[in-house]
Design a protein around this nucleic acid. Sequence first.
RNA 1: GGGCGCGUAGCUCAGUGGGAGAGCGCUCGCUUCACACGCGAGAGGUCGCAGGUUCGAAACCCGCCGCGCCCACCA
Length: 882
Amino acid sequence: MSSDQVTEIARTPRVPDRPTLDGIEAKWSEAWEREGCYRFDARAPREQVFAIDTPPPTVSGSLHVGHVFSYTHTDAVARYQRMRGKAVFYPMGWDDNGLPTERRVQNHFGVRCDPSVAYDPGFQPPAEPSEKEPVSISRPNFVELCLRLTETDERAFEELWRRLGLSVDWSLTYTTIGAHAQRVSQRSFLGLLARGEAYQLEAPTLWDVDFQTAVAQAELEDRERPGAMNRVRFRTEDGADALIETTRPELIPACVALLAHPDDQRQRALVGKDVLTPLFGTRVPVLTHPLVDPEKGTGLVMVCTFGDLTDVVWWRELSLPVRSVLGADGRLAEVPWGAAGWESEDVERARREYEQLAGRTVNQARKRILELLAEAGEIVGEPTQITRAVKFFEKGERPVEIVTSRQWFLRTMAHTDKLIERGRQLHWHPPYMRARYEDWVGGLTGDWCVSRQRFFGVPFPLWYPVDQQGIVRYEQPIPAEQSQLPVDPSTDLPAGYTEAQRGQPGGFVGDPDVMDTWATSSLTPQIAAGLAAEAAPAGEGEELFARVFPMALRPQAHDIIRTWLFSTVLRAQLDHDQLPWSNAAISGWVLDPDRKKMSKSKGNVVTPMHLLEEYGADAVRYWAASGRPGTDTAFDAQQMKVGRRLAVKLLNASKFALADLPREGDALGSPLDRAMIARLARAVAEATESFEDYDYARALERVEVFFWWYCDYYLELVKGRRYDSGQTQAGRDGAASVSRALRRSLSVFQRLLAPFLPFVAEEVWSWWQDGSVHRARWPDARELREALGEVGEAPAAGEAAVEDEALAVAADVLKEVRKAKSEARRPMRAPVARLLVRDTPQRLAALQLGLGDLRAAGSIDLVETAEADELAVEVELAPEDA
RNA sequence: GGGCGCGUAGCUCAGUGGGAGAGCGCUCGCUUCACACGCGAGAGGUCGCAGGUUCGAAACCCGCCGCGCCCACCA
């Protein structure tokens, strides 16, 4: 593509009589698809590739205004980079794996997954789904339904993205549950296993009792819940009181120790002794630990297995025994009072009391044990009502518990120093977002638990041998072969076994779990780059992968820095020993006008499609693009109207500039034209600089401000010359200059606005240019400045300054003239009989260069000047009848 | 409790050492030959509070107040 495109009209402009935005979205999105406008050029060398790790939206929800907001930011950057000549790798993924989809499928079809049920190839979901009495189906059947439902969602999402004008290469589409993503995810896991970065452990794990699955630290959130603080009496053997305070009395049977701070004098007499638990008479030691806060409660704290994460710390560091009462279903389990570990001073009583609790949920058991404690006189004083922060699984409805189970972990704690270093190598936009990453990495307390006891996810590619006694030998996992991937160990077979051996002594079992959804999402750069690599000719895939990965950009919202961003950095570190991308652009949220995060319910009222229909894609994009990187932005339909105005303005300014252009005498000779082009060059430089820093909002603001000034002042000032009748050589020269300036500036404006308003920019570009504006070259400030030198010598700095001042003074005076007409309540075309301009000698001298244009623009007959310290004008309007 | 960000016109925000600004909203005016999906003009602010640095502070430093987000050992 030649840079001359900036100046040359490719063909006679075809400008509609009445330009309109109607219909341009359908017209151009179809054309872009037909022409392959956004297709990634797989032959581009690595230094020309700009690869984007697009966030795959969760398809089981609905896209809301917040998605439109942040995806528009990325698209503006993608379009800029494409115009800069980059081969933009811009894929789209759908995150359809995981719990949200499971829940949705359960409700939609009225089914429940039961892994013990056999696969039914002819299964059809019930005609009238019942949430109350779901049909139990096999895991493969369940997964089929998940796929069926997500496919519909994905079509709707793609439709919306196309309507919004995202310049995605739709041939690069993946799903996180698809075979390709599963293969990448399982291959990575097997590599980690081989290198000892993945391990399994029977250990206390965060557990959601409703979903009955392990969850990760990153998936927790705090919620304020009312609670009651009870003062409960433990006793030493010689009958002395040891008082503790607790909000979780139901865990007293699981108590394994009482703790005090080592320096707490008040507890000195107790430390080192044993005490008996109330009701159950279990003997537990009183120990010390520096984490105990002597100011809290009585200064004595009960350690249970397990009430919270601190209990786990104490249990581990003090080598305490396990005495676990809570089952995976969130109810208190039966326990063998009197057996090893469950000794009691009064076994019969312990059994009797515990019978009142077994089988109850946590809340029921808490209520009951408080009654029992009160009856036994072991509660001291009245309970205090408090509000406390309780940890919940972010998608859960009851607090998480800590349950001991066998889980798979990825090593993270061994790599935190390296991960912080990687975070410092990453370019953050805005830079302060790095702090959130460092806080998170620095605050990690354990390795990443990646196994989930769920169904719709990527299975672990593992089986375990079953020995002759029928015991599963978890410590000897049988990994899948690379060539088998992806595998589902519940239906596929490990090498050397037959299906008949499944679950039999001497046979095998498949790993029943699936991976955490983030365990797959954390590989999106590798999944996306792998898509291109798989499509490459044989033998070239690896080389192509290396041209795409690591990528240039990860765009995402700030709330998932601790999950998605962190885990992606971790996986790239573990698998590739490098960063997955060089830049992270963090977007904010969309807030309600009342400054709260826009809620799902409201998001459903104001659907993105509804907005696009009402205001148009360019208008919605304009609002989105005005939200600065990392900053939360209020939802504002008013701004969309402003965006629509800008789009209409571009239509009309283009019409004006292109109508009846003279084809000869292309001299850029007039001072105001030259000054405008020089100012335009500065605007281009600012927009470019902003985009290079990923600040699309600043780029838009600079372009927009200058474009409105151009329309309001420059276009008005040059209208007279633009319509010159051509009777004199000076008139013809002036018209030719304006014509040339309009063509140059219009071409630049159309391209500067293209990343933000792709539809209208393409529309006006098509009136006079061949090819898509989105494949045109991003305007270049230097090139524009050089254009000023095309007639004779490039202007000297001093000359350029005078020309710029001429434009400034002419615009200032024009404003004063307009003011006078406005105050006189006369139309703007009302003739001015006489104009007196007072100003500094320098500015008056500069004004001479633009006097002709000013007179035409203001319909001014006579202009006089007088020297003064600052601008002041006297306007004498011609009589109204004249 | 710790960290980060924010506090400028009624609203949304730009401005980071030397004139307090934009858009929207509001008021008034104008059928002007690109545009009534328009154009022009106007009103409106102790730049959160208090100190300090400086010839000069909305901006830099210290403290405080308020709002938001993230994190925390939540007994």
